[in-house]
Amino acid sequence: MFLTAQKYPQLVRLSYELRLDILNLIYSSGGGHIGGSLSSLDLIIATYFSDIFKNNHFVLSAGHICPALYVTLAKKGYFPKSKLNTYTELGSILQGHVSTDVPGVEYSSGALGQGLSFSCGLALGDRNHQTVCLTSDGEHQEGQVWEAAMFANKYKLGNLINIVDHNKYQIDGSVADIMPLDDLAAKYIRFGWTVTVIDGHDFNQICSAFEKARDSDYPNCIIANTILGKGIPTMQYDYHYHDVKALPETIYHRAKADFESIIKKMDPTYDFTA
């Protein structure tokens, strides 16, 4: 399917607005996992704003990319946007890895490879709703992911959707160098899943895959080809931006200006101080 003339521009605009929020959040807190936050953001936006799933569960298995989830939940109204600048502060609900202290979050994570199993349990215990899990490609090196893949097939969890943020990088380098996953789609197919491979920054493709998954009787894997650091050219495809300790001033101001100018073109009334 193709998104409507109203929905598509709404999602695209959110994609820039929330990229700016991630940038500000990580700049003001002095660091964070920016690369995967930017690669996964469009997938999270589509999950929360496409209205394809109704009252679905969402499990962020790759807990380190929580900035993308935090800005989305703030936009969705789960907590005030002003809280975003408390990211990683002592006592803040916005921990460095996602936790259930955040309104709207169902699963505390951080150690990779565990979220798909948790999602299997959710999907089995609540067959009436979709369970959407977001995993990274690197975490597929954990054996537990494949234990969960077997389980989902055995219990025919047609309401389970695993979105793989396939940005092809992990903390120490490229996935292909560290431990190649080879043909991830073929592996999931062999495990009995329905697989859809998409461009993870194209909302038409994302939402089309979501609809297909929603209507499927088998566990669903959406392999979303994404770009690490998407939207900030100096960061793209560079694993050194998996996380940053401090965002260089020049990169920050350049990216901020870029995002703001695009957002202004889309929505001249947008309030950047809000």
Binding site: Q114, G115, S117, C120, G121, L124, T131, E147, A148, M150
Partner: peptide, 11 residues
């Protein structure tokens, strides 16, 4: 490992 995760999700 998966069993512990499934148990958590069910809970």
């Amino acid at each position: 490992n998966n069993a512990a995760g499934v148990a958590a999700g069910l809970a």
